[in-house]
Structure formats: C-alpha cells, structure tokens
C-alpha cells in the first residue's frame, strides 16, 4: 500500500478541489476525468515515489538482517482493503477470491505485510470470504530487530487497525524502546481507547471532513512532540494534508 499512498494523496487533493464531498454533477465529472486522464493528473512526483521506495527498501533490509527469507511478486496484487472498508462487500468478496487464486498460482504460502490495512483484510477478513483460505499472514514488525534510530523523542500516532483490531498497540512501542527512542504518552491522546483516527478512511468519501479530523488529530499530537511517527501509509498521507508545525515520519523511515 506504500506504493499507492502518493497516488491516493493526489486523488484526494483532486476530489477536494472539485468539491466531491457535496456529491452531484461535479463529483461525477471528477470521477469521469480521473478515469480518462488519471494516469496523467494523478501521477505522483519523483520525490513521493522515492519516499515509498525508501520505506519498502528499509523494511526489506531489516528483514534480510533478521535472516528472513522472502521474495517479492513481480505483479503484487492489491489486497482490496478499500473495497471492504468503504462497504462494497460483495465486490470485495469477488476480488479477494481472485487474489487468493493468484497467490496459489504463484505458490505463496505466507505473506509478510507492511501496512495495517493489508494485514487486517488478509488475516481477519479473507478467511470470512474465501473458502479454504490457508495463507499465513505475518507483519514485518513481528520479524525485524532494529538496532538504531535517527530520532530521539517522538509521539506515536496509532493506526486504529493495529491498536484496536490487531492487538499490536505495544509492538511498535517495544521496537522504539529497543532502539532508545522516547515516545511521549498521554492516555487521552495516545491511549489504546482514546488515540484518535487520522480521518483517512473517509478521505475518498468526504475529503473535507477527513481533513478536519486530521487537523484536530495533529493539534493533539503536537502538544506532546513535534515529531510524529505513523505506522500506516494512509495515516501518513492524511495527517500530512492537515499542515501544522510537525514533522511526520513513518516508523520504517526512522529505524533500521
């Protein structure tokens, strides 16, 4: 999903500019325009593409260092998480069966995930919709052993999925502890129950509301530190849209 994040950022900006939140003709025109000219107008910059590549290369390096043997599919299929999360369940079910078929054709027995949306749908949702789903799903966070960090004091913006669906709230905290990074905590800002969502899941439905949610979240986080760590590409994109005097980094940008 990291490869998709720069494109999502462009698409959401476009949706916001054309007033997609109010629906109607303007939103329909934007959708038609994106279909026709999406390859041109949604093309991410070199810098944005390098950001995604840097994160994925760092994760691959950490996996290699930990002695994990893995490969990368040439045409890695998207998990379909967005379809499920936006409520298009029947379409998701068809798509998931296709992805499973593709995995089986390529002899995949285990998938290492690098983002919470992919991990959640593969581990928790695919078994509900794909008969006989038997692929093991493991997060890179469970495999790597970072030895250094390039930040010293941060605040963590939790992924709702990692914290409240996948029971990984402590996993990335322990990783930061292991490399001596101080993470400032406040139960009403970073607690498991109270850590706020970034607004990202509705950025394609109501980009203006998503941005408002992100602005509130950025204000809360900025009270604790001006360095914010995200663990999800969607959180990174949506919090980045909110502005504010903070620096946002993905976890895999600051540890190695």
């Amino acid at each position: 999903m990291y490869q998709l994040a720069p494109l999502i950022a462009r698409a959401v900006d476009l949706l916001e500019k054309v007033g997609a939140s109010s629906g109607g003709m303007r939103a329909r025109l934007a959708a038609a325009g994106a279909k026709l000219f999406g390859g041109l107008i949604l093309k991410p910059s070199e810098e944005e593409l390098r950001w995604a590549e840097r994160i994925l290369r760092n994760i691959a390096n950490m996996l290699n260092k930990a002695g994990v043997q893995f490969g990368v599919l040439k045409d890695e299929p998207y998990s379909g998480a967005l379809l499920y999360e936006l409520g298009f369940v029947d379409e998701f079910a068809d798509y998931a069966r296709e992805v499973y078929r593709y995995f089986k054709e390529h002899g995949v027995e285990e998938v290492i995930t690098v983002d919470p949306h992919t991990h959640h749908v593969l581990e928790k949702v695919y078994p509900e919709f794909v008969d006989g789903f038997d692929i093991k799903v493991v997060s890179y966070m469970d495999l790597v052993k970072p030895t250094k960090a390039n930040v010293s004091k941060v605040v963590i913006h939790d992924s709702c999925l990692y914290a409240r669906y996948l029971d990984r709230y402590d996993v990335y905290r322990r990783m930061l502890d292991s490399v001596g990074v101080v993470h400032v905590e406040d139960p009403y800002v970073t607690g498991k129950a109270y850590s706020g969502c970034c607004g990202g899941p509705i950025e394609s439905v109501k980009p203006d509301v998503a941005k408002e949610v992100a602005k509130i979240r950025v204000r809360q986080l900025a009270r604790l530190s001006d360095v914010v760590i995200t663990v999800c590409p969607i959180c990174y994109v949506n919090l980045s849209r909110a502005g504010g005097n903070i620096k946002i980094f993905d976890l895999a940008e600051v540890i190695s």
Binding site: R164, C197, G200
Partner: peptide
C-alpha cells in the same frame, strides 16, 4: 451518516 464512519472502533471501547 453511515458512509462517513471511520471504523476506528474508539466508540466500542467506551
């Protein structure tokens, strides 16, 4: 209303 739920589950914990 239904399309704008973030599914973040903060509500369920309280």
């Amino acid at each position: 209303s239904l399309a704008t739920c973030l599914r973040c589950r903060a509500c369920e914990l309280v």
